[in-house]
Structures are given as C-alpha cells and as structure tokens.
Design a protein around this nucleic acid. Structure first.
Lengths: 217, 217
DNA sequence: ACACCCTTTAGACCACTGGTCTAGACTGGT
DNA sequence: ACCAGTCTAGACCAGTGGTCTAAAGGGTGT
C-alpha cells in the first residue's frame, strides 16, 4: 500500500502522480486503465513508479483509499445508530446516506471510480485489497446492521452475511441508479427516501402476521 | 455474434471450441481469460478463431448466450405471473427462482461464468452485448414487474427503472451469496423463501399506514 | 485435365500491456 | 576523495488481443 518512500516525496509530485492516476482510473476503470499512460501523464519514469508502488493494484488501492478517506472526512462520522428506537434508526440512516450522496455528487471522478470498484473487487487478486478497504469505508454497514438489530429495526431471522450481501447489492444498485439520473438536488431527498424505504421493507423485522410487506391485502 | 460460418462447422469441432472457451472463461473470468489459451486448447489456429468470431467479446457473448439458453431450456418457461392475486404472484416467483437456482447448481461452469458476468458487463465495450443478452435472459424481470403491479403485488410509487435496477442488484447479490454457500439441497427452499421475502418487503405496495415494514412497532 | 474462384487455414507480425532489471546519477557522511 | 544508500531512467521481457498475407482445399464449368 504505497511504499513509505512515496510519502517522503514533495507533496507537489505526490499530487501529480495521484491526479494522473485518479484521472486514468476514473476514465477507464481498473482493468482498462494503462499504467504506462499514468506514468507518462505524471511525468515520471517507469522505474520510479515501481519504486513508489508495488504495481497497478497497489496504486489503484492507494488512490481509492485516499479519495474515500477524503469523502468520509468531508461528510463527517456516522451518527450513533443505536441510540433511540427503530424509527429514529431509519431516519438517521436516511440522513447519513443522503449526505454521502451529496458529497459524492461533488466529486465526479470518485463517483466514476466507485462505479468500477465492485467490478474490480470481484477479481480474486483484489480481495486482499478489498479487505483492507472494507474495513476503511464499508464497515459502518456492518455496524449499522448490528445497531439496527439492537433497537429492533432490523430482522434477525436471516444470516448476517446474507443481510450484508443484500444490503451491499441494494446499495450498489441504488448508487448506480442515482448516478445515472440527472442530478436534481431538489428531488434527491425524495429519491433517497424511496430507496431507504425499500431497504426498510427488505430488512425490517417480520411481525407475527407472517409477512409485513403485504399490508395491502 | 458468432459468424454464420461457425455454425456450418461439424458439431464436433464447434463443441471443441465451445468447451475450451467455457472452461477458460469459467476459470479466469472474461478479462483474465486468454484467447491464445482457448485457441491452443481447441486445437485451431488464430486465423480460424478470428474467422469464426469477431474477437474475444464475441466469443464470450456467444458462449454465455448458448449456456444461458440451455439453462432456461432445462428449467422451462416462466409461469404466468399475472394470473391470480398478489399471494400467488409471490409464490410463483419463489418457485421459479428456486428451480433456476437448482438448475444452475448443476452446471458449476455456468455458475462461475455468471459470477464474473456482472463484472464484465460494467465494461462500456460490453453494453451492446449486455443489451442483447438482457433481452434474452433478464426480460422476464421486466415482465414480472409489470405483471406484479397489475395484480397489486408490486408497488408503483417509484420509477420502474429504479425498481428494475434494485431488483437486479438484489438478485445479483442473492445469487452470489447462494453460490458462495455450501450447496445444501435441503435448506435451499428455506433460503430462497428468505430471499423472496426480502424482495417482497422491498417491492410490496405501501399500505395507507405510511410504511408497512415496521409492523413490529 | 485444367483453370478458375471462393472458402478456409496457418502463423508471422503489430502495437501494446504490466512488470523486471541493470546501469548510472545524485546525495550525505566520513 | 571515497563509499553507501537512495533514487531514476529506460531497455527489456513474456504475454496480450488483433491484423494480414500467403497458401492450401474444394467445388464447378469447360
């Protein structure tokens, strides 16, 4: 994850490399990004690049981590999900999700990288990197799940791994859908509400009356 | 999509090429699969391969399409979703989904290809191919959605494109989760029931009492 | 039997990829 | 002045997907 030597570089050169890499990865995704182009755009030699980073994956992981860290820093820490009742849990989640999306909309390159992230993460060679990053950017899903179960907002009749997988899948689909829409700050809250409402329907505990989803019947 | 010449080949040689390609793609995914290895394994020359197929993507798309078609043929056509009430809609969906999964479990190579499919499909160069295949294998999601709305089993307060996107995302996550579990035919029905129950919670219409998910409150 | 044309095959060749390696430039310490 | 360690440049490597040319087959008309 970025040889320490890299951090000793003058920040200006660090920035040049990072900017070139971000641009390339955002434009082409991980696989079709060309390390040679990054090297050329950054104005360094191949030897230097491999002196600072272990390789393409390492560079990608570092850029992604850095950018994500910046995003979460801009938004601030997640609220305490496990203080209050189920109702406040869901509204806190909705608020936080909306803030994240607004921040993401402000950095289109990061959004583009995220779009290709899940594809890259399926590469077996990436699971190690993904593990590191999941502990740095996705962990709050796991925590939020546990917190939700504690306050009775989330069902506990299914395996946690399944809940996490489906939550990630839904989240990814929602993010992609939102990013494919024209960005309208005015309607975003309503859209986010609809999304969280679907999550709530999927993950809320089932009442004694079999399923809760069919209130219309 | 597979030059017509290919179809005029003796079936035996078609099989040899298809088997080699399926094996390679299943083992390495689209990107890391080597066309040269496929050529070697199939025992043909590079010129012949490019004479029969437009390129790597074309070969992949053809193999995927062929295998999927075989799967759907094995399972049979989907039932009529729009006959009956909401309750029968959901149980028909559950049955059909379970049958598909059982068939999929019987062909591990197809399962492996599917695992890498969504990753490959995110490549812009693939959207054309994906479009063709979505019309061949996923269209019933769209139809099922419309049918479900007709019988009052599916909400219609959100854009259809969003429902489709989320349904695809949830489906993909569920498939991947199931394929990562040890296959236990005995517990599969219960797992499928849990998955459909989550879908139901997300997509069922909301009753007049705001949300239906919080029946526990 | 010959010539003709179209289909098919073989594989050399191309630009490019990520990654390795070596030779040397630069630096600070003695 | 010498040496050791840090850093840089870029030639080089095996492998990639894809193109292209030259020749081999195979059928048909004469």
């Amino acid at each position: 994850m970025a040889r320490p030597r890299f951090l000793k570089l003058p920040p200006q050169q660090q920035q040049a490399i990072l900017r070139a890499a971000l641009e390339e990865f955002a434009a082409h995704g991980f696989h079709d990004a060309s390390l040679n182009r990054v090297i050329e755009a950054a104005g360094i030699s191949k030897g230097s690049m491999y002196y600072y980073f272990d390789g393409k994956e390492d560079l990608y992981a570092y850029v992604a981590q850095t950018e994500f860290a910046g995003l979460f820093e801009r938004v601030g820490p997640p609220p305490d999900f496990d203080a209050g009742d189920a109702e406040s849990f869901w509204s806190a989640l909705e608020d936080y999700y909306r803030q994240l999306l607004q921040a993401l909309a402000a950095s289109p390159q990061l959004a583009a990288m995220l779009r290709g992230w899940s594809a890259a993460a399926k590469n077996p060679a990436f699971q190690e990197v993904q593990g590191e990053l999941e502990q740095a950017s996705v962990p709050w899903i796991e925590q939020a799940l546990a917190a939700g179960q504690k306050v009775g907002a989330i069902r506990d009749d299914l395996p946690a791994s399944l809940l996490i997988a489906v939550a990630l899948g839904m989240g990814e689909a929602m993010d992609l859908w939102l990013m494919s829409q024209p960005v309208d700050p005015g309607s975003l809250p309503a859209q986010v509400h609809g999304l969280i409402d679907m999550m709530r329907g999927a993950f809320a505990p089932r009442g004694p009356a079999q399923q809760a989803g069919n209130a219309i019947l």
